[in-house]
Design a protein around this nucleic acid. Structure first.
Length: 234
DNA sequence: AGCACA
């Protein structure tokens, strides 16, 4: 018994029908039987790098957790392609025939490591003082080695993100991030509090609300209005 | 603890 992995479900079905009942032993007249596997074949990409995954798979194997799923290690994440089963649409767009398509083992994207958009860890943060909530966050505790692109990739994917400004000072780097509204800023304020950006070299970042929201340096409107009114600038 | 842009 064996399993073969194809680039597309379409190609798998084509191969299945082509090979079905083919006599592969002329003497004994034994015919080949093919059927679709119950799960996608799991192909390990980089051997030896992910020691954890290997260990875990071994542990699970010896755990005998094969009873309900004899064909694939139970831990492997459900590939997105699974949703295509039963969907009539999966035959509508057969790719142009390419005899080598299946060779460089297809993008087993399901096993790829998480994209660099997330923080690697969270560190405790003593969040001493904060300012009243507004739509702009002030990010502190960033080392001067921090890479702006890492900050950007972390924050620009947050819902409501509008813009970001990095301010480098002598020993400190801080960063301002504007969001659509106070709610978006508030939720990021708590979800990313203490997030660790490796390049910062400082541990977790400290997130506070900005003293001045984006686009307003001081409360210049009020100040100007008072001046024009002759009212005392409180 | 460090708060710019207009």
């Amino acid at each position: 018994m064996g399993f073969a992995l194809f680039s597309t479900a379409h190609q798998a079905i084509a191969a299945k029908t082509a090979l079905q009942d083919m006599v592969f032993d002329a003497e004994t007249k034994v015919a080949l039987h093919t059927e679709m596997a119950k799960k996608n074949l799991f192909v390990k990409r980089c051997v030896g790098i992910d020691a954890n995954a290997v260990d875990q798979s071994k542990r699970l194997r010896t755990g005998g957790d094969y009873t309900h799923s004899p064909y694939a290690p139970p831990f492997h994440p459900p590939p997105p392609a699974v949703s295509m089963w039963g969907t009539p649409g999966y035959i509508t767009a057969p790719p142009p025939y390419n005899p080598y398509a299946a060779y460089p083992v297809p993008p087993v994207a399901m096993t790829s490591p998480a994209p660099v958009t997330g923080p690697t860890a969270y560190a405790p943060v003593q969040n001493t003082k904060d300012n009243p909530p507004c739509n702009t966050l002030f990010i502190g505790n960033l080392g001067d080695t921090v890479v702006e692109e890492e900050l950007r990739s972390l924050f620009s994917v947050q819902p409501g993100f509008k813009q970001m400004k990095v301010l480098r000072q002598d020993r400190n780097t801080v960063c301002f991030i504007e969001f659509e509204d106070v709610n978006a800023a508030t939720s990021v304020h708590q979800t990313l509090q203490g997030a660790v950006i490796p390049s910062s070299g400082r541990g977790g970042m400290r997130i506070q609300f900005s003293k001045n929201p984006f686009g307003r340096r001081k409360d210049s409107a009020a100040g100007l209005a008072s001046v024009l009114n002759g009212a005392p600038a409180n």
